[in-house]
């Protein structure tokens, strides 16, 4: 046993000696200042040299259904990013959904209310209820709390106007849904934005286009599998 351990240790030291010129290694998992600095400088270079990701592949509905859990597909058109989230926790009307690599979105009454695992997370928020949005008229009040680069909480306050855009038949990953389209146009202490919601007759939000927080691209959320 001791011999095996020795060999492993010696081999890893040799491996590390080679790697150390470019990177750090060992049991310490924190970023090393020098290596980190080099990586930080190289990262944008890598992107500039064409390291950009192409559009993510679309997973067929049947595969998603085989998971046996509800699935929502998210798309960020601006960055050609597609992601899949499944529910991992629920407390009353608050549901937290997660990607496979530990990014979560929390919905309060079906409305995006927090994210975690992103660089710029929506840390806290005040959001209207789904029923309020569904009414399609009047105003709503929203509040977004995000962290600045010095870990200080910055709040954005918004007042939004709801408008009823009528009935629409939408297609969500090959399936047709009859919905009622409501737009929520918001003005406030940050950049203006508009969220869109497509409600089914049951009151369920089948699809929505929401800002994670003002200034950030819209995320299109399609509730594909209901379970």
């Amino acid at each position: 046993m001791g011999k095996v351990l020795e060999m492993t240790l010696r081999q890893s030291i040799i491996f590390c000696a080679v790697a150390a010129l470019l990177a750090a290694c060992g049991t310490e998992k924190q970023a090393d200042p020098l290596t980190g600095g080099v990586k930080a400088i190289m990262a944008p270079l890598g992107q500039a040299l064409g390291g950009k990701r192409g559009p993510a592949p679309t997973v067929p509905r049947t595969n998603l259904e085989q998971l046996g859990v509800p699935v929502t597909v998210g798309e960020i058109a601006a960055t050609h990013t597609k992601f899949y989230i499944v529910p991992i926790a629920q407390t009353g009307s608050v549901e937290t959904w997660s990607t496979s690599d530990d990014i979560t979105a929390t919905f309060r009454d079906g409305v995006l209310a927090a994210t975690r695992g992103l660089r710029a997370d929506l840390m806290e928020s005040a959001t209207p209820s789904a029923a309020r949005l569904r009414s399609g008229s009047g105003t709503t009040v929203r509040q977004y709390g995000v962290l600045d680069g010095g870990d200080r909480l910055v709040r954005f306050n918004y007042t939004c106007q709801l408008s009823n855009l009528g009935t629409e038949t939408i297609s969500v990953l090959g399936r047709q849904h009859l919905t009622h389209h409501v737009a929520e146009s918001c003005q406030g202490s940050g950049p203006p934005f508009t969220n869109d919601y497509w409600f089914e007759s049951s009151g369920k939000i089948r699809k929505s286009s929401e800002v994670m927080f003002p200034g950030l691209a819209q995320v299109l959320l399609s509730r594909v599998v209901d379970k």
């Binding site: 990701r53 993510a56 592949p57 997973v59 595969n63 998971l67 046996g68 859990v69 960020i76 960055t79 990013t81 597609k82 992601f83 899949y84 499944v86 991992i88 997660s98 990607t99 496979s100 690599d101 990014i103 695992g117 992103l118 660089r119 710029a120 997370d121 995000v146 600045d148 680069g149 910055v154 994670m212 927080f213 200034g215 950030l216 691209a217």
Partner: peptide, 24 residues
Amino acid sequence: GRPTWQILAGTVSALAAIGVGVGF
């Protein structure tokens, strides 16, 4: 608990960088 859903893995890491340099 978190169900396994390997077929979805690897499609989202680009997502994590969202928000770099925005807002402030």
